[in-house]
Design a protein around this nucleic acid. Structure first.
Ligand SMILES: [Mn+2]
Ligand SMILES: [Mn+2]
Ligand SMILES: [Zn+2]
Ligand SMILES: [Zn+2]
Lengths: 129, 129
DNA sequence: CACTAAGTGAGAAAGATTCTCATATTGGGA
DNA sequence: TCCCAATATGAGAATCTTTCTCACTTAGTG
């Protein structure tokens, strides 16, 4: 593994929640100037391949990513306020399976993402109100 | 409503399944040359606003859209082979709700999309095998 | 008919991601 | 340790989708 990938991985582990490629690049070059944005994109592609990170939405056209503790199949609960992300088990509900069956559709993949406010941001919102 | 919007809506109704803005533009100008791509994008934005269409994925970086019969909250079952789309009811499964509750997260929005093969494409795949 | 708000077309612009290419590094095997 | 093929890197160009600008035309209301 190259030195750059190692630094990018470290920076990625330090990200608090959802982040874009540019967010991560900014953090990386604070510690190690000179690393290029293209290298960050390349590292991100590898991480996504391995399941170390996943797409959890988008922000103004940029892909939002987040670190995954689990590398097996799971989904995400994303705070739209602070970007914190929690991995969740999330088998398809019965209604979905029944609809698919009725249509004769063979489901090979599904995407589920939940958005809202995490406990902390929810408390803060209540306090402000 | 402008003449252009009417033509774009007609063309949209004739789309067989999932389509991109350019797919639709191509169809529109077959019937009515001169209508600009920007106008198609503007019409699509309005349709999405009204619930007449919805995003159902992406194809090589372009947003995939599909017509909705229902304008209320629902989700989609998309054939990755032919692009056919079926609307489905799809309340969150218990597992998802329990995960959110345990995390103290207030869920305000969720996205669910199922991908796979429709009945027709499935039959064709079996025949080929 | 007159007026205003909204829509239009063409192209420029914006922005994210990928590609190119010359150079540099890596890690394994001799 | 030295060599080499494979892979990674950095800088910027290129690509490509979507949005914006602006001068001009409609739609719709009264
Ligand atoms: Mn995860
Ligand atoms: Mn629908
Ligand atoms: Zn939060
Ligand atoms: Zn199909």
């Amino acid at each position: 593994m190259s030195a750059q990938r190692a630094r990018i991985a470290e920076a990625m582990l330090g990200m608090p929640g959802a982040f874009t490629a540019e967010d991560l690049h900014r953090r990386v070059i604070e510690v190690t100037p000179g690393i290029g944005l293209a290298t960050v994109y390349r590292a991100l592609a590898a991480m996504q391949e391995s399941g170390a990170i996943a797409t959890v939405g988008d922000r103004h056209g940029s892909t939002l990513l987040a670190r995954c503790e689990r590398h097996d199949h799971h989904h995400h609960l994303v705070c739209t306020e602070c970007g914190s992300v929690v991995g969740i088990d999330c088998p398809l509900g019965d209604a979905a399976l029944i609809s698919a069956e009725r249509a004769g559709h063979l489901v090979t993949r599904h995407e589920i993402t939940l958005y809202g406010l995490c406990a902390i941001c929810r408390a803060r919102a209540d306090g402000d109100a």
